[in-house]
């Protein structure tokens, strides 16, 4: 998995490269928009991380130009501008995800991993399975070990998102954005309670829990046997 980091702050870029390297990514750094455009057009990357404010060519224009060329590489836009309007602008220009600065490295790595899962074939997947937990996206039915589990609509969406990113860390913010479509930081740990409700439905009475809490980061659903 190759990631192009487009960031003019060298220190921040190095930290990013290191964190992504530890997560198993190969990274390349471009210090300005034009260099990034050259790199992105001359070789293939799996994810682009683009800072919004860049020398020479700003991040949004860079993404727009790449999209005009038919480049569909997933793009994560980083920005010091965090308002909803800015996010909308960022996503409209062709970005796939938007992370306001300052961000936590855990959050960033989790989002990059999530982006690598976004492929053209992904849409065709109708069933997610983790261990003996199965989610049928057509009938909206969930079962574990053959036993049907009844979920509320929101719980279903939560589980669907977690299973779509099975084996990856999913942060609370990612859940809030993708399952609820909210972009704010609740002071109470509202997400945790939703997760524990879901967990009690899918893991209760089962020998092996599938839904783990990753300390300091978020949650992950996986089957440890594999």
């Amino acid at each position: 998995m190759r990631v192009l980091i487009v960031e003019d702050d060298r220190t921040a870029a190095d930290f990013l490269a290191k964190a992504l390297g530890e997560a198993g990514f190969q990274t390349e750094i471009a210090g300005d928009g034009e260099a990034a455009f050259d790199s992105a057009t001359s070789s293939k990357f799996d994810v682009l991380i683009v800072d919004r404010m860049l020398p020479k060519l700003d991040g949004l224009t860079l993404v727009e130009r790449l999209r005009e060329r038919g480049d569909t590489t997933p793009v994560l836009i980083l920005s010091a501008l965090g308002a909803v309007d800015d996010r909308v602008k960022g996503l409209r220009s062709g970005g796939d995800d938007y992370l306001p600065k300052p961000y936590s490295l855990v959050e960033l790595v989790a989002r990059v991993e999530a982006l690598t899962r976004r492929g053209p074939t992904e849409r065709a997947v109708t069933t997610y399975a983790v261990g003996d937990l199965v989610l049928d996206r057509l009938s909206h039915k969930v079962s574990r070990g053959g036993e049907t589990i009844v979920l509320q609509p929101r719980e279903y969406r939560l589980l669907e998102y977690l299973m779509k990113h099975a084996g990856q860390v999913v942060t609370r913010t990612m859940l809030l954005e993708n399952v609820w479509d909210y972009h704010f930081d609740p002071q109470t740990n509202v997400i945790d309670v939703h997760i524990s409700r879901l967990r009690s439905k899918i893991d209760k009475g089962q020998g092996k829990p599938l839904l783990e809490t990753v300390r300091g980061a978020g949650y992950m659903i996986r089957d440890e046997r594999r």
């Binding site: 309007d85 909308v88 609820w180 909210y182 609740p186 109470t188 309670v193 524990s196």
Partner: peptide, 27 residues
């Protein structure tokens, strides 16, 4: 007022937010 002003069903919006907080409240 920004361009992102759009039509909202306020009751549905409140129910959505309440739904987010409901488990935490119960806990």
């Amino acid at each position: 007022r920004s361009e992102s002003f759009g039509p909202l069903n306020v009751c549905a919006l409140l129910n959505d937010v309440a739904e987010l907080y409901e488990p935490a409240a119960e806990e």
